[in-house]
């Protein structure tokens, strides 16, 4: 794993820059600063992505294996296509035991904030359950939901909604959750 380390430094630095968010929007209040800055984003966002050609890298997982699956309106059941992707994710995770993952569930903007949070959680859980069924240790996986808080696509049409109804598998280097 150390092979890639040097070449990834720059990327790592960029990743860490996420920590600076609060400062960028300075006029902040007392703020979530202390805990939020460090602990909050730390696990998720500060990992270098690696070289997409390296099959053990996060970039490879994201791009080649596929880090997300999509859902039908209001649904949390996995389509055959989603199962294909998740099977590959499971294989990858089984071959790369140094990674843990957080599965983020998302919804499109049609729906109330509260309901969509719950719906996102359902989707994340569906993915988690599938991965576990494929042999990934349950303690390597965690779930969360963003509801409609983090859309990928911003238009208000089905073409965007379809991409926003998703669950993303975010790898965490090192830690075994």
């Amino acid at each position: 794993m150390s092979i890639a380390a040097k070449s990834l430094l720059l990327i790592a630095v960029l990743g860490l820059a996420a920590c600076n968010n609060p400062d960028r929007y300075g006029a902040g209040g007392a703020g979530a600063g202390g805990a939020g800055g460090a602990g909050g984003m730390g696990g998720i966002d500060t990992t270098g992505l690696g070289d997409p050609n390296n099959p053990t890298s996060i970039a490879y997982f994201n791009q080649t294996v596929g880090d997300r699956v999509l859902f039908a309106v209001d649904q949390s059941t996995l389509s055959p296509e989603a199962r294909g992707i998740l099977t590959a994710q499971a294989n990858w995770l089984n071959q790369n035991p140094g990674y843990a993952a957080i599965i983020e569930g998302h919804a499109d903007e049609q729906g109330t904030r509260e309901y969509n949070l719950a719906l996102g959680a359902r989707r994340a859980a569906a993915v988690q359950n599938f991965l576990v069924s494929q042999g990934v240790a349950a303690n390597r996986l965690r779930t969360t939901s963003y509801g409609k808080e983090k859309p990928l696509e911003v238009c208000s049409e089905e073409v965007c909604y379809a991409k926003n109804r998703r669950a993303e598998t975010k790898l965490l280097a090192g830690a075994g959750a």
């Binding site: 609060p22 400062d23 703020g31 202390g34």
Partner: peptide, 21 residues
Amino acid sequence: TRFQTGTVVSAIGHAGLVLWV
């Protein structure tokens, strides 16, 4: 090693945050 530089950067940012707090 991979994290060292990042840690420094982060530390600076966090110091600022602590100040904010």
